[in-house]
Amino acid sequence: MADTRHSAGVFDIRTIIGLLLAIYGVILTLMGLFADPETEKTGGTNANLHAGLVLLAVGTGFIAWARLRPIKVPDHVEPVTDDPTRPAPKKRPRGGH
């Protein structure tokens, strides 16, 4: 039998988290570069710029992790019949309602 598995792709949670972190990183980096840095509130550092760069790095790391080690999803999964912890399906009432 041939292995017919494919990767989770965009639906991999690491991709979604990485994209969200990267988007926030871009926004904060742009705010750090072009907005008032307000260094008197942060002790002399540009907090938006530093946080944005860290978020970009972590988001890129998540995306690279998902690309380099993709989750393989089988095309067909056999139904589980012997799992005692799985709840039984509810019966429909007779009479068609």
Rank of each mutant, 00 (worst) to 15 (best):
18 G>A: 03
35 A>Y: 05
30 L>V: 06
24 Y>P: 04
3 D>W: 11
86 R>C: 00
49 L>R: 07
55 L>H: 05
14 R>K: 12
6 H>T: 11
62 F>K: 07
54 V>P: 02
47 A>H: 12
54 V>Q: 06
31 M>Q: 10
50 H>G: 01
18 G>L: 05
60 T>N: 08
72 K>I: 00
61 G>P: 01
57 A>T: 11
25 G>M: 05
71 I>Y: 10
2 A>H: 13
93 P>M: 08
4 T>H: 01
44 G>C: 11
10 V>G: 06
15 T>Y: 00
92 R>N: 14
82 D>L: 08
80 V>E: 15
7 S>Y: 03
6 H>K: 14
52 G>F: 01
13 I>T: 14
15 T>E: 01
73 V>C: 01
4 T>C: 02
79 P>N: 09
63 I>K: 05
1 M>F: 09
54 V>G: 04
83 D>W: 03
50 H>D: 10
39 T>S: 00
15 T>L: 03
55 L>D: 05
30 L>T: 07
10 V>F: 12
94 R>N: 07
46 N>W: 03
10 V>W: 10
56 L>R: 02
67 R>T: 05
44 G>N: 14
23 I>V: 11
28 L>V: 00
62 F>W: 09
65 W>D: 12
33 L>T: 01
70 P>N: 15
25 G>E: 03
16 I>W: 10
70 P>Y: 15
44 G>R: 15
67 R>W: 10
7 S>N: 09
16 I>C: 04
3 D>C: 09
76 H>N: 11
67 R>P: 03
25 G>W: 04
63 I>Y: 09
24 Y>D: 01
36 D>Q: 06
39 T>K: 09
12 D>C: 07
95 G>W: 10
75 D>S: 10
64 A>S: 12
33 L>E: 02
22 A>Y: 05
57 A>M: 08
73 V>H: 05
16 I>S: 01
58 V>D: 04
76 H>W: 13
96 G>C: 07
29 T>L: 04
95 G>Y: 11
83 D>V: 03
11 F>P: 01
23 I>S: 03
56 L>Q: 06
24 Y>H: 07
26 V>Y: 05
88 A>Y: 12
78 E>H: 14
30 L>N: 07
50 H>P: 01
77 V>H: 11
26 V>D: 00
64 A>Y: 08
33 L>W: 03
86 R>P: 04
12 D>L: 07
31 M>D: 05
26 V>M: 03
93 P>S: 11
54 V>T: 12
40 E>S: 08
27 I>Q: 04
21 L>N: 00
89 P>W: 15
27 I>R: 12
16 I>E: 04
89 P>D: 14
